[in-house]
Structures are given as structure tokens and as C-alpha cells.
């Protein structure tokens, strides 16, 4: 393990790339048992996905996704893993 001069860790960075296909993501969420999914378009490449039952908002842009989850940690990890399956990792 590499460390900085102050003793803190230097960690290898992992990269995620690609553009999220909203429909594929919504289909994948439905398969994971997530219900009450509402998609709102916010411009050319942007969308907000509302998951009312799970107290969550997902803001999607062409090169970023922000998962704002006020629900259970299990919900957040499920959303994370489902999203990662719809993108590419390096």
C-alpha cells in the first residue's frame, strides 16, 4: 500500500464510463423489484428518476449520475449495483 507523507493512503482509482440508457436502467430497476418509477425529462440529455416508495431521486446527465437516497442503505446499494450493470467499468 502506498501512503502520502502524512501517512494517509493513496488508492488506485477505478473508472466508470458511458452514457446511461434511461429505459434500460428503468427496466433493470423494475426487474429488481423497484416499483413506482417516474421519469421526468430535464433537457436534452438530462432526466430525474423519482422512486417515491424508496425516498430516492436519481439525477441523470450524459456524463454523470447523482443518487440522492433518503431511504434504506439496502435500497442505495441495490440502485448502485443496478446502475453499474448499465455502465462500463475500467
Amino acid at each position: 500500500t502506498k501512503r502520502r507523507a502524512d501517512g494517509t493512503l493513496i488508492r488506485p482509482k477505478s473508472y466508470i464510463w458511458g452514457k446511461l440508457n434511461i429505459q434500460s436502467f428503468v427496466d433493470a430497476l423494475t426487474k429488481q423489484g423497484i416499483t413506482d418509477i417516474k421519469v421526468e425529462s430535464t433537457g436534452e440529455d438530462g432526466s430525474i428518476i423519482h422512486l417515491s416508495n424508496d425516498d430516492t431521486l436519481i439525477q441523470v446527465e450524459s456524463d454523470s449520475t447523482h443518487i440522492i437516497c433518503e431511504g434504506e442503505e439496502a435500497v442505495r446499494t441495490k440502485l448502485r449495483d443496478t446502475l453499474l450493470k448499465c455502465l462500463h467499468k475500467l
Binding site: 446511461l20 450524459s62 456524463d63 447523482h66 443518487i67 437516497c69 448502485r80
Partner: peptide, 9 residues
């Protein structure tokens, strides 16, 4: 393009 993924709770 790198895809930025962020979480907020």
C-alpha cells in the same frame, strides 16, 4: 467520457 457517480444521503 468518464461517468461521474455520486451518492447523497
Amino acid at each position: 467520457a468518464e461517468h461521474q457517480l455520486r451518492f447523497t444521503s
